[in-house]
Design a binder for these strands. Structure first.
Lengths: 349, 349
DNA sequence: TTGTACGCGTTATCAT
DNA sequence: ATGATAACGCGTACAA
């Protein structure tokens, strides 16, 4: 051995001085070896109550904060979960994140959230960053990814969850609901309510399988019902209140015969209802309006909004549960978990 | 030496097999030493263009993902920033997070977000968890913290930012606006508009300095204006649409003489406006309603909402900028950064 | 129940 | 410009 080690005082001569205490300091203070301190923190059952207490009080009085970076390197477990969502300024995904948090925080996992801005290359970069940090599991939004992402994740050997959609061929496991079925159900519902001239306002479909499947679901339902599929009855736009208002105006200018509009997101539907207020159009008298999300505002709006409740909080909870069991060594169950949806009928239709 | 090391093949006999390649594998493939690979990744300028390219192509073809955990241990830099917000299901904080992200992601920092649920003990636990992960900097919401948090952070020796409020005595640096001044300005504004019987609906003030200062600001303004301070004109509630509606009903039942209501959060104001629609009360004819936030819905609401624009995105940006300069070794500037607020007059008053 | 010895994969230092 | 070597602080197999 060239340098003194073991129980001798560590060399402080080079590098920036260590700011915080290390496990060894606690061990000395408690009169035990370093491993015993490690056990008290990670496997308390393996340590006798007497020494455990001695160590714990040493930890407390020294204000010791274990170094999880070093711990992760040694244990090959980072206790972080990477989550990629399209945008954080969207309360719908926030509910999913909340569900996830509620489950995994009990097991001391932390979420690291990245937003892809609906850009598949950005998604790949985030995936790489999370793998680089040795995330114990990864969660992606949607089932559409680029080659880089797929190659990275195939080799990753950690649990991967896709969410907010369904596919027969997930990377690992997908937890969500059928955007196609949800949208077609609503269109069918409007038909059953007697509406025959149904407009549609949806999201931008590029790189977004959720909005694309909603549009396809609507169109398929029109087909099945024997209704005409008219391009002028469809508006695509970003999801915000103002765009919903604009989209409604455009639809009714082009197609005054419309008696109902299905918005593939509540935020568009709410914007549309506001536009009706401004124009003095009665809802649903002049035009019925339906949404999709059952966001928190839907029930409070005047009139309350007919919409589709999607299990956004439960998606998080379910992924959290599946993930914890996987991380505890339990083998993967179903590869596709469909949490369904519910049509909520309110006064706007 | 007891175990073979260096350029020999690593021992694969014990422990779970290493899933991914290491820097050493790349070095061998490129015919250079391990350090050179490290330099190509971290200080490319120090490597000659020729070898740099050789290494880079080796990295690319091996699909190598560097281990940032090991890197962090060696460099004492984690490249993560801990952020504690009261709740993630609140788009106001999401805007701040977005601002932060937009700035720090360019420098490859990742945010780790924890929600305290307005619980100061939970905040302390999150702070400890972030320190344990060797976060390079920490961001807290508000300026009220418990003893544990303060002790931890005083010893932390990393940049600490408090936000969404102001104080003369920050832990390190505070970036925000005066909730007190914002609220009192709005109350004064309503007075100037001719309203004399002003109700107030605010948030729960326990452990929440932002809502508390808003209430105090309102009351102080009433005092200054010579208006009576009547407890029955004040409602405290959680921030959601339904509570805003309820609060308005209660206020007008108790105090039918009210001609204006100031809601210390837009979500309450919007809920109140909805209640007016349901009851057939004209806004601002029967009752004027003002909010605080200038949330995305405020301008779209019918009638558009008079409110206070607060710099929630800019708070994130500014903290990000200050933080990056600190992390690059530039000394701390102002300890208190006031980003102000703006009253936005619309048709609801 | 407790301790010893080694390795986790990288960066920093110093030498060439 | 490049390389050899020693930390970084902790977890874990194995021994006692």
């Amino acid at each position: 051995m060239k340098t003194p080690k073991g129980t001798t005082t560590p060399d402080e001569s080079k590098r920036p001085a260590r700011s915080s205490k290390r496990m060894m300091d606690i061990a000395k203070a408690a009169g035990v070896s370093l491993v015993t301190v490690s056990r008290v923190l990670n496997h308390p059952g393996q340590v006798s109550p007497r020494t455990r207490e001695r160590v714990q009080s040493a930890i407390a009085s020294a204000n010791y904060v274990p170094d999880l970076v070093a711990g992760s390197l040694a244990s090959r477990r980072s206790k972080i979960i990477g989550v990629i969502i399209p945008t954080i300024t969207n309360s719908l995904f926030a509910d999913t994140i909340q569900g996830l948090t509620d489950v995994v925080e009990k097991a001391d996992y932390k979420l690291v959230i990245g937003s892809s801005r609906y850009d598949l290359d950005a998604e790949a970069n985030l995936a790489r960053a999370f793998l680089s940090r040795r995330a114990d599991a990864l969660i992606l939004t949607g089932v559409t990814h680029n080659e880089t992402t797929l190659k990275l994740l195939m080799n990753a050997d950690i649990p991967i969850f896709e969410m907010w959609a369904l596919t027969d061929n997930p990377i690992d496991t997908v937890v969500g609901f059928s955007n196609f079925e949800a949208a077609s159900s609503m269109t069918r519902f409007l038909y059953e309510e007697g509406y025959r001239n149904i407009g549609f306002m949806g999201g931008l479909t590029e790189n977004n399988d959720r909005t694309m499947m909603r549009e396809k679901g609507h169109i398929a339902a029109l087909h099945d019902l024997g209704l005409p599929v008219l391009p002028e009855r469809i508006e695509r736009t970003v999801f915000d209140f103002h765009s919903g208002a604009q989209a409604l105006k455009h639809l009714l200018q082009r197609c005054p015969e419309l008696d109902a509009v299905f918005a593939a997101s509540d935020v568009l539907a709410v914007g549309a209802v506001f536009e009706c207020h401004r124009q003095g159009w009665s809802v649903p008298g002049r035009i019925a309006i339906a949404g999709l999300d059952d966001s928190i505002i839907a029930a409070e709006l005047v009139p309350p909004l007919t919409t589709i409740r999607i299990p956004r909080y439960d998606i998080g909870v379910r992924i959290g549960e599946e993930m914890l069991s996987r991380l505890n060594g339990i083998p993967r169950g179903q590869r596709q978990i469909d949490l369904g949806f519910t049509i909520i009928e309110r006064a706007s239709t």
